[in-house]
Design a protein around this nucleic acid. Structure first.
Length: 558
RNA sequence: GCGCCCGUAGCUCAACUGGACAGAGCAUCAGACUUCGGAUCUGAGGGUUGGGGGUUCGAAUCCCUCCGGGCGCGCCA
């Protein structure tokens, strides 16, 4: 539709210019679906954007373009409206063609359109997300990260890109040492040996469980060891397994895990430091090595290598090396998903990567604000240190994976997300997940009835007469057929919430349609029934496809 | 104090990247089942888009400035 209208418009503008009705200024032809469908199926604001350069009233330009238009059969009607919009209405035949195509192609039809997406000719997309340190169970914040990342990955995958889901593991840092020490202390205490937990040590019950497991397996064999590595490895193994189990409950899997320690061992961190030094971007001070902020436009210097005999690189240094490595792997699009508390660090990493001579253009970020939990109207305070947080696992236990998946992408990522437990548990229309799923179950039920009425749509049956569709039914079909555009927009903007909102609208429009007695799908008029079943089939496939992208089930019965 | 994000109906949030009259759900009030699933639907009220300036054909959206909230400003990640 877009292509047809744009080419039609650009040809008209050329003709108008040839006749001297318009000047030769550049015209960016934008088209969009109007908010109000009374304005037509698609509208263009070219005349408005040309007004300044042309020095003419927008409506006059619009009229000139309209007069020069040569309409293809797909376009039924053109009008100039409002301040100077050119509105197009597509012919019923065009829409009937789209509907048939959607039915023919099935779920494939409803995917994002690859050729309209950013990476261009390129094919390789990487989404790095979650990347939680294995120091404890996943929390709600992690949930938002995981589902934003996974849903965006699903979008690009559905569009036909080669998508790598990647988890970056910070296993070289201080937190890991702290974790190891916390486990060791608990282990010693299990043996009756007095030991002091480090000041910022981890206190959760899961630490105790790991210690108990070690004691059960190895007795007191570790009580005199100075090597913390054993405790670290045991803790990381157990906690990582827990994290993976939680992810699997949500239908999330990773293709690649990258370790900070591996990057260091491969000399990548040293190479970053060498490169920065060669560009005079390092400074030595207080026994540490700093990244100079001023030449990079950063507010201050940042430590890259800590002081002390071990000369340990910081998290930031490893992250720079990691991003260089990602770029060198040749991805056409790299999506980083992280919380708002990491913004500054991300900017530092990007600045350093660019300074090292890399093109950082493929890197895009999804930055999300924090998650709060509400139960019965009360905000629940959450602290990771103490055992007062709600884990993602507990949340899944309570409301189910479908609701968790849907709710975490039901907000724009840069607004805070309030997870309302009360609402999430409700099996009622105000719960958007059930509302959408119910629409699907209802449609499935209609098909069960159709079989009883011997109206089942079979492959060899003649196509129904789409001219029998009422205006309301055609609008409903148009809404369903608009899904690929929504999907494409969601992928382009890295905004999965658009899909959730769109599905809610589509389901609502169907529920409203369904409730009118005059719209009974299975009725005495078999021809009409067959046409309406065709529409129902379109909606059912569309809703299932949309929920599929979100990773939410589309139940046949509820 | 400085940097980033946010502020939209009583509440939770949309608004297709600057477009046409700012839309949904919840809550409130009033209604609809001899009907393919009432886990649904119909109707009503509810707004100076935090305040004030500016940019232009046109602003919730961009700029400036106040006010309010969140996050960051560590040799943690």
């Amino acid at each position: 539709m877009k292509e047809i209208v744009v080419s039609c418009l650009s040809a008209a503008i050329e003709r108008a210019r040839a006749k001297g009705l318009l000047g030769s200024g550049a015209a960016a032809i934008g088209v969009e679906a109007p908010k109000d469908s009374a304005h037509g199926d698609i509208a263009s604001n070219v005349a408005l954007t040309m007004a300044r350069a042309e020095g003419k009233a927008p409506r006059a330009i619009a009229a000139a373009i309209k007069d020069a238009l040569e309409l293809p059969p797909e376009i039924a009607e053109v009008s100039v409206a409002g301040p100077g919009f050119i509105n197009f209405r597509m012919s019923p035949a065009y829409w009937h063609g789209e509907i048939r195509r959607a039915i023919r192609e099935g779920p494939e039809y409803f995917r994002p359109r690859k050729w309209e997406l950013g990476p261009g000719a390129g094919d390789k997309v990487q989404v790095e997300f979650l990347s939680a340190n294995p120091t404890g169970p996943l929390t709600l914040g992690h949930g938002r990260n995981a589902l934003l990342g996974d849903t965006v990955a699903r979008l690009f995958e559905a569009a036909g890109f080669a998508v790598t889901r990647e988890y970056y593991l910070n296993d070289g840092g201080r937190q890991m040492k702290l974790l190891a020490e916390s486990v060791r202390v608990r282990y010693l205490r299990e043996l009756g040996i007095d030991a002091e937990l480090p000041e910022d040590g981890y206190q959760g019950d899961y630490i105790l469980d790991i210690a108990k497991e070690l004691r059960a397996r190895l007795g007191d064999r570790l009580h005199e060891t100075e090597d913390r590595e054993f405790f670290r490895a045991a803790a990381v193994k157990t906690i990582s397994a827990d994290i993976n189990r939680t992810c699997e409950r949500l239908g999330i899997r990773f293709d690649v895990y990258t370790n900070e320690l591996d990057l260091m061992n491969a000399g990548r961190v040293d190479r970053v430091l060498d490169g920065l030094r060669a560009r005079d971007l390092l400074a030595e001070r207080d026994g540490a090595i700093w990244l100079r902020g001023a030449p990079l436009g950063l507010p201050k210097d940042e430590v890259l290598v800590r002081s002390g005999p071990e000369r340990e690189p910081t998290y930031r240094t490893a992250d720079i090396a990691y991003h260089v490595e990602k770029l060198e792997r040749g991805f056409d699009l790299i999506v980083d998903v992280f919380g708002a508390d990491h913004i500054a660090e991300h900017q530092e990493v990007l600045a350093a990567v660019k300074a090292l001579g890399h093109d950082a253009a493929p890197i895009r970020a999804i930055i999300y604000q924090f998650v709060t939990l509400t139960r019965a109207g009360e905000k629940i305070k959450m602290s990771t240190r103490k055992a007062t947080y709600v884990t993602l696992d507990e949340l899944i236990d309570e409301v189910g994976a479908d609701v968790v998946r849907f709710f975490f992408v039901f907000r724009k990522s840069d607004s805070q997300l309030d997870f309302d437990l009360e609402l999430a548990k409700k099996q009622a229309p105000e719960n958007p997940v059930f509302y959408v799923q119910y629409a699907h179950a209802r449609l499935a039920s209609i098909f069960r009835e159709a079989v009883k009425a011997d109206l089942a749509v079979s492959g060899d049956a003649a196509e129904p007469d789409l001219a029998l569709l009422s205006a309301e039914e055609l609008e409903l079909a148009k809404r369903a057929v608009a899904m690929p555009a929504v999907m494409t927009g969601a992928a382009e903007a890295l905004e999965p919430h658009r899909i959730a909102f769109y599905l809610l609208e589509l389901a609502g429009e169907f529920h409203r349609y369904y409730n009118k007695p005059a719209n009974r799908i299975i009725g005495p008029d078999r021809e009409l029934s067959r046409t309406r079943l065709y529409l129902a089939g379109l909606l059912r496939t569309a809703i299932a496809a949309g929920l599929g992208i979100l990773g939410v089930s589309a139940p046949e019965r509820m």
